[in-house]
Simulated scan of single mutants.
Amino acid sequence: MGGTRMHVCPLCKRSDGTTRLSAYWRTLSPEGRAGVPHLARPALHDERWTAPLGLLTVGCALLVADTWLGFVGLAGGGFWLVSLRDRVAQAAKERADWHRKLICRPCHHAFLP
Rank of each mutant, 00 (worst) to 15 (best):
M1G: 08
G2F: 11
G3A: 11
T4S: 12
R5D: 15
R5A: 08
M6H: 07
C9W: 09
P10M: 04
P10D: 07
L11Y: 10
L11C: 11
R14L: 04
R14C: 07
S15T: 11
D16V: 12
D16G: 09
D16L: 05
G17D: 07
L21K: 09
S22I: 03
A23P: 15
A23C: 09
A23L: 08
A23V: 12
Y24F: 09
Y24D: 06
Y24C: 06
S29C: 03
S29I: 01
S29K: 07
P30Y: 11
P30A: 02
G32F: 15
R33K: 13
A34M: 10
V36A: 09
V36S: 10
V36F: 14
P37Y: 14
H38D: 03
A40I: 00
A40R: 13
R41H: 11
P42W: 15
P42G: 09
A43D: 09
A43W: 03
L44V: 12
H45C: 12
D46T: 13
D46V: 10
D46A: 15
R48V: 01
R48Y: 05
W49I: 00
W49R: 05
W49H: 04
A51L: 02
L53G: 00
L53H: 01
G54S: 15
L56V: 00
L56H: 02
T57Y: 01
T57I: 01
G59N: 08
C60V: 11
A61D: 00
L62G: 12
L62Y: 09
L63K: 13
V64G: 06
A65P: 14
A65I: 00
D66W: 07
T67M: 05
T67P: 15
T67V: 06
T67I: 02
W68N: 03
W68V: 00
W68A: 02
F71E: 03
V72N: 08
V72D: 02
V72Q: 03
L74G: 00
L74Y: 00
A75G: 08
A75W: 10
A75M: 12
G78P: 13
W80N: 03
W80R: 09
W80T: 01
L81N: 06
V82W: 11
S83V: 03
S83I: 01
L84G: 08
L84K: 09
D86P: 15
D86L: 14
R87Y: 08
R87P: 14
A89H: 15
A89G: 04
A89M: 10
Q90C: 11
K93G: 07
K93S: 12
R95W: 02
D97M: 13
D97V: 05
D97K: 11
D97H: 10
H99I: 01
H99F: 06
H99T: 07
K101C: 08
L102F: 15
C104W: 04
P106F: 06
P106N: 12
P106Q: 10
P106V: 01
H108I: 07
H109I: 01
A110E: 03
P113L: 04
